[in-house]
Write a protein that binds this DNA or RNA. Sequence first.
DNA 1: CTGACTTTGTGCCGACGCTAAACAAAATAG
DNA 2: CTATTTTGTTTAGCGTCGGCACAAAGTCAG
Lengths: 407, 407
Amino acid sequence: MTQIRTRLERGRSALGPALALVHTGRAPTRALLTSELGVTRATAGAVAAELEALGFIRVDTRPGGASGAQGRPSHGLDLDPAGPVVLAAQVHSDGFRAALVGLGGRIVATAPGCMTVPADPAHVLGAVVEAGAELLRASGRTCLGAGLAVPSAVAEPEGTALNPLHVAWPAGSPVRQVFAEQIARAGITGPGGAPMASFLGNDVNVAALAEHRHGAGRGAGQLLVVATGHRGVGGALVLGGRLHTGSSGLALEVGHLTVNPAGRPCHCGSRGCLDVEVDPLAFLEAAGRPPGPAVSLLEQARDLLRDEYEDPAVRAAAHTLIDRLGLGLAGLVNVLNPDRILLGGLHRHLLDADPERLRAVVADRSLWGRSGSVPLLACALDHNSLVGAAELAWQPVLDDPLTALGG
Amino acid sequence: MTQIRTRLERGRSALGPALALVHTGRAPTRALLTSELGVTRATAGAVAAELEALGFIRVDTRPGGASGAQGRPSHGLDLDPAGPVVLAAQVHSDGFRAALVGLGGRIVATAPGCMTVPADPAHVLGAVVEAGAELLRASGRTCLGAGLAVPSAVAEPEGTALNPLHVAWPAGSPVRQVFAEQIARAGITGPGGAPMASFLGNDVNVAALAEHRHGAGRGAGQLLVVATGHRGVGGALVLGGRLHTGSSGLALEVGHLTVNPAGRPCHCGSRGCLDVEVDPLAFLEAAGRPPGPAVSLLEQARDLLRDEYEDPAVRAAAHTLIDRLGLGLAGLVNVLNPDRILLGGLHRHLLDADPERLRAVVADRSLWGRSGSVPLLACALDHNSLVGAAELAWQPVLDDPLTALGG
DNA sequence: CTGACTTTGTGCCGACGCTAAACAAAATAG
DNA sequence: CTATTTTGTTTAGCGTCGGCACAAAGTCAG
């Protein structure tokens, strides 16, 4: 069932959908573009030609192909290696990372940075944007937007970070506004000198977007992602290729599902929340291994799961956390009924440790065996939050390439 | 952010959106149709004329209006009282109800029936369809589709009822198929003699759809509905005007959220589920009033709340259930972040009994005060499941009026 | 190597759905 | 009665896409 449209949207040509198909790798040839788009070959040809003229793609028209299939080989559609990029950045507890990301989720250039500056949004984002501006200057490529991923719930439409505790920012900081200001200050402008379009997203949310378009979530119609980084649990839902962030950006706050009624108290006022029961610290404590200061909690947990899984205490701790994670996932399955679930951070390592156990718990505790048998996979992208931040910036381009170029 | 369209859909004209606007009462005049549609007056005029020619609406072009506003008064757009209808039906534990429903959610004719026939889908639906066919013959109006609401989870795309226990049908009955067969058997066909399009939905799901389009959910972007009938709790989510049923129809199975960790055991294997903690029977038991056989449990609970709320035991029971309902709603708010919540059945009576308490619990137990302050309202439609079943059948017409008429 | 076959790219024309602009109509305000 | 506001109508034109015919580039069979 299609939505009751209240307003006819602009950009109704096939240009945007076509670019999205190439972007997500679903249209590597012009023939596939034709079929996926559901238009005639003539239209697909015109669209491909226009995308090439706009500088997004290159149509490989060389006759050299020995494809093996019958019939005339189709022209290849490649993303233009000199095409436009977006500025993407990620802020986390250890520092930040700025990058230029092209279409297809391709990281063109990247620059890490540490958090030596005062823990204040304006200073941190000033450094982030400075690093990005330097990358942009060095590359000489056109920039069409900017996206930032933060480890915090993001309230829409204001673009404020409600709990950026891992980066020690004040709750409610107007992060998107600060980001945009720093970009303007650095002299980065969009096509035609317009202010650069700036976007902000929660790191797990945008990671889900990246996984859906370029990673383990490709082709999923309703993708649920649950992940944990250092502390706390984040969730995300991608519906029909779009991030579902709820009416004010606060959906999928899954950290406070109850997974252990008699468990440890949580700052939310309840007990046994996913947030405090299934994160790296909880695992290390359950395994009787006090966390050391050397590496991050996540790395310690990962190494323990990988290297000492034969240790009965480690295994018992893993089983306990797997059972609780499964309980939380089952609750989400009952409410959301996704057709695929991706796990990140510690959760993916728990999945790797004993996939059958986790799948069994989810199936057992969800109402219908059918929806309980939803595939559970690990996240597949290396820098999914970074690429996801770029996806935020790419979105208007995919929706309407002409307008995004300043047409 | 708009979806990455993989395929250009048919029916891209403004005809469908325009009909939807009149259907939902958002375009009572041609001028409003113009602005809501976002097209020029010329286009809106052509669209309105075509909808009138198709028999859906009537354009009231009489100059008699003294509207009070400046400028030329706009032509009124009324639904054609002789326009097409759909066949809608609802099956519940006490019997069934068949009806003809016009655009705008207007019940044109209705016929109740009791469950004297054997509790078998084919027999019951045979009687339902027979009643509907009789209404159709008597009305002489064109029928464009058929929708059925059942008190059961419905698996998509098969259209099977997974737990139709209240009507004593076998789990997994192919209800949509049986419904369609009975319609064909009764000789009801669509325009041009094509088989009548038949739809099946869970009763709470379709009720949510009806409330969104014609009731207390109008204008909500992300509407959550939670309701209980006789036993058990159902949920529904309407996103962007569309029912969100998950990847296989099983989303919003909210009955097994834990709201009382030490509570009574549930058939799902857990304890203290919403399903068994906040339904009419649980309320009557908590109030120390053993259920009598005279009227339904829901009516007994409603009367108790209305007439004896001063009784300390009743009030204490209500508070207990309100607190547990609020806990469940808060969990849903954290995951879904809707911008409005509607309550039905016992839940609406609990809301009526003490709105402040319920709102406070939801706000307190949801993570962000902001999303916790989501408006809580009671369902407003008299026969929302019946009208919602009709909405299922109207949907293809709203999406593409021309094709639905057999163009 | 040659010809049949399959599949894809291209050019041309028309249909459709909309916008833009100018004008006419129907009300209110003074 | 006239000016103003708002809406309906007519006409011309544009942009996007489908349909069709034809050309192009490969495989397959002999």
